[in-house]
Nucleic acid binder design. Structure first.
Lengths: 191, 191
DNA sequence: GGCGCATCTTGTCAATGTAAAGATATGCTC
DNA sequence: GAGCATATCTTTACATTGACAAGATGCGCC
Protein backbone atom coordinates (compact mmCIF):
# COMPACT_ATOMS: atom_id res chain seq x y z
CA UNK A 1 0.00 0.00 0.00
CA UNK A 2 1.17 3.46 -0.85
CA UNK A 3 -0.57 5.29 1.98
CA UNK A 4 0.15 5.07 5.67
CA UNK A 5 -2.66 4.36 8.10
CA UNK A 6 -3.64 8.02 8.16
CA UNK A 7 -5.24 8.48 4.78
CA UNK A 8 -3.94 11.37 2.72
CA UNK A 9 -0.55 11.45 4.35
CA UNK A 10 2.21 10.63 1.88
CA UNK A 11 5.02 8.39 2.96
CA UNK A 12 7.53 11.17 2.47
CA UNK A 13 6.91 14.39 4.27
CA UNK A 14 8.88 16.53 1.89
CA UNK A 15 10.33 19.08 4.26
CA UNK A 16 10.39 17.33 7.58
CA UNK A 17 13.57 18.88 8.87
CA UNK A 18 12.22 22.38 8.59
CA UNK A 19 8.82 21.29 9.92
CA UNK A 20 10.41 19.78 13.01
CA UNK A 21 12.40 22.91 13.76
CA UNK A 22 9.25 24.99 13.41
CA UNK A 23 7.38 22.60 15.69
CA UNK A 24 10.21 22.84 18.20
CA UNK A 25 9.88 26.62 18.30
CA UNK A 26 6.16 26.29 18.99
CA UNK A 27 6.56 23.62 21.64
CA UNK A 28 9.34 25.44 23.47
CA UNK A 29 7.41 28.69 23.48
CA UNK A 30 4.50 26.86 25.04
CA UNK A 31 6.28 24.97 27.80
CA UNK A 32 9.99 25.71 27.80
CA UNK A 33 12.92 23.61 26.55
CA UNK A 34 12.77 21.21 29.51
CA UNK A 35 9.38 19.89 28.50
CA UNK A 36 10.38 19.33 24.87
CA UNK A 37 9.59 15.87 23.54
CA UNK A 38 10.76 14.43 20.25
CA UNK A 39 7.64 12.33 20.01
CA UNK A 40 5.49 15.41 20.44
CA UNK A 41 7.33 17.12 17.61
CA UNK A 42 6.79 14.07 15.44
CA UNK A 43 3.07 14.18 16.22
CA UNK A 44 2.90 17.89 15.37
CA UNK A 45 4.58 17.22 12.05
CA UNK A 46 2.35 14.22 11.36
CA UNK A 47 5.10 11.62 11.13
CA UNK A 48 6.09 8.59 13.14
CA UNK A 49 7.87 9.02 16.44
CA UNK A 50 11.20 7.78 15.09
CA UNK A 51 11.32 10.06 12.08
CA UNK A 52 13.19 12.91 13.81
CA UNK A 53 16.12 10.66 14.57
CA UNK A 54 16.96 10.35 10.90
CA UNK A 55 17.44 14.09 10.48
CA UNK A 56 19.00 14.99 13.81
CA UNK A 57 20.35 11.81 15.35
CA UNK A 58 19.07 12.46 18.83
CA UNK A 59 17.39 15.13 20.90
CA UNK A 60 20.62 17.04 21.46
CA UNK A 61 21.17 16.96 17.70
CA UNK A 62 17.84 18.61 17.06
CA UNK A 63 18.56 21.29 19.63
CA UNK A 64 21.98 21.82 18.07
CA UNK A 65 20.36 22.62 14.75
CA UNK A 66 17.81 24.76 16.56
CA UNK A 67 20.50 26.74 18.35
CA UNK A 68 22.44 27.24 15.11
CA UNK A 69 19.29 28.53 13.45
CA UNK A 70 18.86 30.93 16.35
CA UNK A 71 22.39 32.32 16.09
CA UNK A 72 21.91 32.82 12.36
CA UNK A 73 18.69 34.72 12.97
CA UNK A 74 20.33 36.85 15.64
CA UNK A 75 23.33 37.67 13.47
CA UNK A 76 21.07 38.64 10.59
CA UNK A 77 18.87 40.82 12.80
CA UNK A 78 21.85 42.64 14.34
CA UNK A 79 23.55 43.18 11.00
CA UNK A 80 20.38 44.64 9.55
CA UNK A 81 19.92 47.00 12.50
CA UNK A 82 23.51 48.17 12.35
CA UNK A 83 23.28 48.79 8.62
CA UNK A 84 20.05 50.75 8.99
CA UNK A 85 20.74 52.80 12.11
CA UNK A 86 24.45 52.67 12.88
CA UNK A 87 23.48 53.10 16.50
CA UNK A 88 24.98 51.05 19.31
CA UNK A 89 21.97 51.68 21.47
CA UNK A 90 19.64 50.34 18.81
CA UNK A 91 21.88 47.32 18.49
CA UNK A 92 21.31 46.62 22.16
CA UNK A 93 17.59 47.16 21.86
CA UNK A 94 17.62 44.78 18.90
CA UNK A 95 19.33 42.13 21.00
CA UNK A 96 16.61 42.37 23.63
CA UNK A 97 13.92 42.50 20.99
CA UNK A 98 15.30 39.32 19.43
CA UNK A 99 15.27 37.48 22.76
CA UNK A 100 11.60 38.29 23.24
CA UNK A 101 10.50 37.76 19.64
CA UNK A 102 12.44 34.49 19.32
CA UNK A 103 12.11 33.38 22.89
CA UNK A 104 12.40 29.66 22.10
CA UNK A 105 15.60 30.07 20.11
CA UNK A 106 17.14 32.39 22.66
CA UNK A 107 16.41 30.05 25.54
CA UNK A 108 18.20 27.19 23.81
CA UNK A 109 21.12 29.14 22.33
CA UNK A 110 22.62 30.04 25.68
CA UNK A 111 22.00 26.68 27.35
CA UNK A 112 24.78 24.61 25.78
CA UNK A 113 24.19 21.71 28.13
CA UNK A 114 21.14 21.00 25.97
CA UNK A 115 23.01 20.57 22.70
CA UNK A 116 26.36 19.70 21.14
CA UNK A 117 28.27 22.85 22.00
CA UNK A 118 31.28 21.93 19.81
CA UNK A 119 29.26 21.42 16.64
CA UNK A 120 30.97 23.39 13.82
CA UNK A 121 27.79 24.99 12.55
CA UNK A 122 26.74 26.24 15.96
CA UNK A 123 30.22 27.57 16.64
CA UNK A 124 30.36 29.42 13.34
CA UNK A 125 26.89 30.88 13.70
CA UNK A 126 27.63 31.90 17.26
CA UNK A 127 30.76 33.71 16.12
CA UNK A 128 28.81 35.57 13.44
CA UNK A 129 26.28 36.80 15.98
CA UNK A 130 29.03 37.76 18.40
CA UNK A 131 30.87 39.71 15.70
CA UNK A 132 27.71 41.51 14.70
CA UNK A 133 27.53 42.86 18.25
CA UNK A 134 31.20 43.75 18.33
CA UNK A 135 31.18 46.03 15.32
CA UNK A 136 28.83 48.40 17.08
CA UNK A 137 31.03 48.73 20.13
CA UNK A 138 34.19 49.05 18.04
CA UNK A 139 32.65 51.96 16.15
CA UNK A 140 31.41 53.63 19.30
CA UNK A 141 34.60 53.35 21.35
CA UNK A 142 37.51 52.72 19.03
CA UNK A 143 40.79 51.27 20.10
CA UNK A 144 42.31 48.93 22.60
CA UNK A 145 41.48 47.49 25.96
CA UNK A 146 38.86 50.05 26.77
CA UNK A 147 36.74 48.91 23.83
CA UNK A 148 37.08 45.31 24.93
CA UNK A 149 35.72 46.10 28.37
CA UNK A 150 32.88 48.19 27.06
CA UNK A 151 32.08 45.35 24.71
CA UNK A 152 31.81 42.82 27.51
CA UNK A 153 29.82 45.22 29.65
CA UNK A 154 27.38 45.98 26.87
CA UNK A 155 26.87 42.35 26.01
CA UNK A 156 26.43 41.38 29.65
CA UNK A 157 23.96 44.19 30.13
CA UNK A 158 21.62 43.43 27.25
CA UNK A 159 21.91 39.69 27.80
CA UNK A 160 21.12 39.98 31.47
CA UNK A 161 18.22 42.31 30.85
CA UNK A 162 16.77 39.97 28.25
CA UNK A 163 17.26 36.89 30.43
CA UNK A 164 15.69 38.48 33.50
CA UNK A 165 12.78 39.80 31.45
CA UNK A 166 12.11 36.37 29.93
CA UNK A 167 12.33 34.74 33.34
CA UNK A 168 9.72 37.11 34.70
CA UNK A 169 12.16 38.42 37.29
CA UNK A 170 11.18 42.06 36.84
CA UNK A 171 8.12 43.30 38.59
CA UNK A 172 5.59 45.40 36.75
CA UNK A 173 6.51 48.35 38.96
CA UNK A 174 10.15 48.10 37.92
CA UNK A 175 9.83 48.01 34.16
CA UNK A 176 6.23 48.63 33.11
CA UNK A 177 5.07 46.88 29.98
CA UNK A 178 7.01 48.67 27.28
CA UNK A 179 9.96 46.43 26.52
CA UNK A 180 11.87 48.73 24.22
CA UNK A 181 11.49 51.79 26.41
CA UNK A 182 12.75 49.91 29.45
CA UNK A 183 15.64 48.43 27.47
CA UNK A 184 16.63 51.85 26.15
CA UNK A 185 16.73 53.38 29.62
CA UNK A 186 18.84 50.56 30.97
CA UNK A 187 21.23 50.59 28.04
CA UNK A 188 21.78 54.30 28.48
CA UNK A 189 23.44 53.57 31.82
CA UNK A 190 26.38 51.82 30.20
CA UNK A 191 27.05 54.09 27.22
CA UNK B 1 12.37 -7.43 59.57
CA UNK B 2 13.89 -4.17 60.64
CA UNK B 3 16.41 -3.85 57.84
CA UNK B 4 15.72 -3.29 54.18
CA UNK B 5 17.32 -5.51 51.61
CA UNK B 6 20.53 -3.52 51.70
CA UNK B 7 21.96 -4.50 55.05
CA UNK B 8 22.83 -1.64 57.33
CA UNK B 9 20.38 0.78 55.84
CA UNK B 10 17.73 1.79 58.35
CA UNK B 11 14.17 2.08 57.20
CA UNK B 12 14.11 5.75 58.03
CA UNK B 13 16.78 7.88 56.49
CA UNK B 14 16.70 10.56 59.14
CA UNK B 15 17.41 13.62 57.04
CA UNK B 16 16.28 12.67 53.59
CA UNK B 17 14.98 16.04 52.57
CA UNK B 18 18.33 17.69 53.09
CA UNK B 19 20.18 14.75 51.54
CA UNK B 20 18.07 14.97 48.39
CA UNK B 21 18.70 18.69 48.00
CA UNK B 22 22.42 18.09 48.39
CA UNK B 23 22.29 15.28 45.85
CA UNK B 24 20.42 17.58 43.48
CA UNK B 25 23.20 20.15 43.70
CA UNK B 26 25.76 17.49 42.83
CA UNK B 27 23.76 16.03 39.98
CA UNK B 28 22.95 19.39 38.44
CA UNK B 29 26.56 20.50 38.62
CA UNK B 30 27.57 17.34 36.79
CA UNK B 31 25.05 17.40 33.97
CA UNK B 32 22.78 20.43 34.17
CA UNK B 33 19.19 20.74 35.34
CA UNK B 34 17.77 19.15 32.20
CA UNK B 35 19.37 15.79 32.95
CA UNK B 36 18.14 15.72 36.53
CA UNK B 37 16.36 12.52 37.52
CA UNK B 38 14.43 11.95 40.72
CA UNK B 39 15.34 8.28 40.65
CA UNK B 40 19.00 9.15 40.41
CA UNK B 41 18.71 11.38 43.45
CA UNK B 42 17.02 8.56 45.33
CA UNK B 43 19.88 6.24 44.38
CA UNK B 44 22.46 8.78 45.54
CA UNK B 45 20.68 9.11 48.89
CA UNK B 46 20.32 5.35 49.21
CA UNK B 47 16.52 5.25 49.32
CA UNK B 48 13.82 3.83 47.12
CA UNK B 49 12.79 5.54 43.90
CA UNK B 50 9.51 6.82 45.31
CA UNK B 51 10.89 8.32 48.49
CA UNK B 52 11.44 11.83 47.08
CA UNK B 53 7.77 12.17 46.23
CA UNK B 54 6.82 12.20 49.89
CA UNK B 55 8.96 15.23 50.66
CA UNK B 56 8.51 17.25 47.51
CA UNK B 57 5.42 15.95 45.76
CA UNK B 58 6.88 15.88 42.30
CA UNK B 59 9.98 16.93 40.39
CA UNK B 60 8.89 20.54 40.14
CA UNK B 61 8.32 20.50 43.88
CA UNK B 62 11.87 19.44 44.53
CA UNK B 63 13.22 22.13 42.24
CA UNK B 64 10.98 24.67 43.97
CA UNK B 65 12.62 23.87 47.30
CA UNK B 66 16.00 23.90 45.59
CA UNK B 67 15.38 27.34 44.09
CA UNK B 68 14.17 28.69 47.42
CA UNK B 69 17.33 27.40 49.07
CA UNK B 70 19.33 29.14 46.38
CA UNK B 71 17.63 32.49 46.91
CA UNK B 72 18.20 32.21 50.65
CA UNK B 73 21.88 31.51 50.10
CA UNK B 74 22.17 34.43 47.69
CA UNK B 75 20.40 36.82 50.04
CA UNK B 76 22.65 35.77 52.92
CA UNK B 77 25.81 36.12 50.82
CA UNK B 78 24.86 39.58 49.58
CA UNK B 79 23.84 40.81 53.01
CA UNK B 80 27.13 39.64 54.45
CA UNK B 81 29.14 41.35 51.73
CA UNK B 82 27.24 44.59 52.12
CA UNK B 83 27.71 44.54 55.88
CA UNK B 84 31.43 43.87 55.56
CA UNK B 85 32.41 46.14 52.68
CA UNK B 86 29.58 48.58 52.06
CA UNK B 87 30.72 48.59 48.44
CA UNK B 88 28.30 48.36 45.54
CA UNK B 89 31.04 47.02 43.33
CA UNK B 90 31.80 44.21 45.76
CA UNK B 91 28.10 43.47 45.89
CA UNK B 92 28.18 42.91 42.14
CA UNK B 93 31.31 40.79 42.36
CA UNK B 94 29.59 38.76 45.07
CA UNK B 95 26.61 38.16 42.80
CA UNK B 96 28.87 36.77 40.10
CA UNK B 97 30.88 34.82 42.64
CA UNK B 98 27.67 33.24 43.96
CA UNK B 99 26.59 32.18 40.49
CA UNK B 100 29.87 30.38 39.94
CA UNK B 101 30.22 28.91 43.43
CA UNK B 102 26.59 27.75 43.51
CA UNK B 103 26.19 27.05 39.86
CA UNK B 104 23.47 24.42 40.31
CA UNK B 105 21.31 26.67 42.44
CA UNK B 106 21.81 29.66 40.18
CA UNK B 107 20.86 27.70 37.07
CA UNK B 108 17.57 26.64 38.61
CA UNK B 109 16.65 29.88 40.36
CA UNK B 110 16.25 31.87 37.16
CA UNK B 111 14.51 29.15 35.20
CA UNK B 112 11.02 29.33 36.66
CA UNK B 113 9.59 27.00 34.04
CA UNK B 114 11.31 24.24 36.01
CA UNK B 115 9.52 24.85 39.30
CA UNK B 116 6.40 26.32 40.90
CA UNK B 117 7.11 30.00 40.42
CA UNK B 118 4.22 31.12 42.61
CA UNK B 119 5.26 29.10 45.65
CA UNK B 120 5.20 31.43 48.70
CA UNK B 121 8.62 30.37 49.98
CA UNK B 122 10.33 30.90 46.65
CA UNK B 123 8.64 34.26 46.23
CA UNK B 124 9.68 35.42 49.69
CA UNK B 125 13.26 34.21 49.33
CA UNK B 126 13.51 35.80 45.90
CA UNK B 127 12.34 39.10 47.33
CA UNK B 128 14.93 38.93 50.09
CA UNK B 129 17.73 38.40 47.57
CA UNK B 130 16.40 41.16 45.36
CA UNK B 131 16.24 43.58 48.29
CA UNK B 132 19.77 42.71 49.33
CA UNK B 133 20.92 43.92 45.92
CA UNK B 134 18.78 47.02 46.04
CA UNK B 135 20.20 48.42 49.25
CA UNK B 136 23.60 48.75 47.63
CA UNK B 137 22.28 50.76 44.72
CA UNK B 138 20.08 52.90 46.95
CA UNK B 139 23.08 53.85 49.05
CA UNK B 140 25.24 54.54 46.02
CA UNK B 141 22.75 56.66 44.10
CA UNK B 142 20.10 57.93 46.45
CA UNK B 143 16.73 59.15 45.38
CA UNK B 144 14.08 58.68 42.74
CA UNK B 145 13.89 57.37 39.21
CA UNK B 146 17.59 57.57 38.56
CA UNK B 147 18.31 55.03 41.29
CA UNK B 148 15.66 52.73 39.87
CA UNK B 149 17.31 52.73 36.46
CA UNK B 150 20.79 52.24 37.85
CA UNK B 151 19.43 49.38 39.88
CA UNK B 152 18.01 47.60 36.85
CA UNK B 153 21.17 48.25 34.88
CA UNK B 154 23.41 46.91 37.62
CA UNK B 155 21.33 43.82 38.14
CA UNK B 156 21.13 43.16 34.40
CA UNK B 157 24.87 43.62 34.09
CA UNK B 158 25.99 41.23 36.78
CA UNK B 159 23.31 38.72 35.92
CA UNK B 160 24.20 38.75 32.25
CA UNK B 161 27.90 38.47 32.99
CA UNK B 162 27.33 35.51 35.30
CA UNK B 163 24.99 33.79 32.86
CA UNK B 164 27.31 34.20 29.91
CA UNK B 165 30.29 33.04 31.95
CA UNK B 166 28.45 29.93 33.12
CA UNK B 167 27.32 29.19 29.58
CA UNK B 168 30.89 29.34 28.37
CA UNK B 169 30.03 32.15 26.00
CA UNK B 170 33.18 34.14 26.76
CA UNK B 171 36.37 33.18 25.02
CA UNK B 172 39.59 32.87 26.98
CA UNK B 173 40.92 35.88 25.11
CA UNK B 174 38.03 38.02 26.24
CA UNK B 175 38.07 37.38 29.95
CA UNK B 176 41.12 35.38 30.94
CA UNK B 177 40.71 32.98 33.82
CA UNK B 178 40.35 35.36 36.75
CA UNK B 179 36.66 35.60 37.38
CA UNK B 180 36.67 38.37 39.95
CA UNK B 181 39.08 40.57 38.05
CA UNK B 182 37.00 40.31 34.90
CA UNK B 183 33.79 40.95 36.83
CA UNK B 184 35.29 44.03 38.51
CA UNK B 185 36.36 45.54 35.22
CA UNK B 186 32.98 45.01 33.65
CA UNK B 187 31.10 46.34 36.68
CA UNK B 188 33.18 49.50 36.62
CA UNK B 189 31.58 50.40 33.29
CA UNK B 190 28.16 50.92 34.82
CA UNK B 191 29.06 52.73 38.04
C1' DG C 1 1.96 0.02 76.26
C1' DG C 2 -0.49 1.04 72.35
C1' DC C 3 -2.06 4.12 68.76
C1' DG C 4 -1.68 7.68 65.04
C1' DC C 5 0.92 9.53 61.69
C1' DA C 6 5.04 10.62 59.22
C1' DT C 7 8.30 8.19 56.58
C1' DC C 8 9.81 4.93 53.33
C1' DT C 9 9.14 0.63 50.08
C1' DT C 10 7.12 -2.17 46.55
C1' DG C 11 4.54 -2.67 42.50
C1' DT C 12 2.61 -0.72 38.51
C1' DC C 13 1.54 2.26 34.35
C1' DA C 14 1.98 5.53 30.62
C1' DA C 15 5.34 8.32 28.26
C1' DT C 16 9.84 9.07 26.51
C1' DG C 17 14.53 8.47 23.98
C1' DT C 18 16.98 5.45 21.34
C1' DA C 19 18.18 1.59 18.45
C1' DA C 20 17.35 -2.00 14.87
C1' DA C 21 15.09 -3.70 10.99
C1' DG C 22 11.89 -3.24 7.45
C1' DA C 23 8.96 -0.44 4.01
C1' DT C 24 8.59 3.14 0.50
C1' DA C 25 9.78 6.70 -2.59
C1' DT C 26 13.30 9.35 -5.23
C1' DG C 27 16.77 10.07 -8.42
C1' DC C 28 20.67 8.46 -10.98
C1' DT C 29 22.68 5.39 -14.46
C1' DC C 30 22.50 3.12 -18.52
C1' DG D 1 12.14 3.90 -19.56
C1' DA D 2 13.96 -0.05 -16.47
C1' DG D 3 16.66 -1.16 -12.55
C1' DC D 4 19.13 -0.07 -8.66
C1' DA D 5 21.35 2.60 -4.81
C1' DT D 6 20.06 5.56 -1.38
C1' DA D 7 17.51 8.83 1.39
C1' DT D 8 13.41 9.02 3.94
C1' DC D 9 10.00 7.27 6.92
C1' DT D 10 7.56 3.30 9.75
C1' DT D 11 7.21 -0.44 12.87
C1' DT D 12 8.69 -2.85 16.68
C1' DA D 13 11.14 -3.32 20.85
C1' DC D 14 13.53 -2.08 25.18
C1' DA D 15 15.41 0.52 29.18
C1' DT D 16 14.50 4.64 31.87
C1' DT D 17 11.70 7.96 33.93
C1' DG D 18 7.81 10.48 36.64
C1' DA D 19 3.82 9.57 38.95
C1' DC D 20 0.42 7.02 41.52
C1' DA D 21 -1.52 3.51 44.81
C1' DA D 22 -1.13 0.42 48.46
C1' DG D 23 1.43 -1.54 51.97
C1' DA D 24 5.37 -1.79 55.48
C1' DT D 25 7.94 0.42 59.24
C1' DG D 26 9.03 3.04 63.23
C1' DC D 27 8.84 7.44 65.76
C1' DG D 28 6.51 10.16 69.15
C1' DC D 29 2.74 11.15 71.95
C1' DC D 30 -1.02 10.08 75.13
Amino acid sequence: MTQAKTAGRPYHHGDLRRALLAAAAEAIEEAGPAALSLRDLARRAGVSHAAPAHHFGDKAGLLTAFAAEGFELLAAALQRIWAETGSLRELGVGYVRFAVDHRAHFEVMFRPDLYHRDDPEVLAAGRRARDALRVGVAAHRPGGDEAERVDLAAWSMVHGFATLWLGGAFSEREVGDDLEAAAREVIRQVL
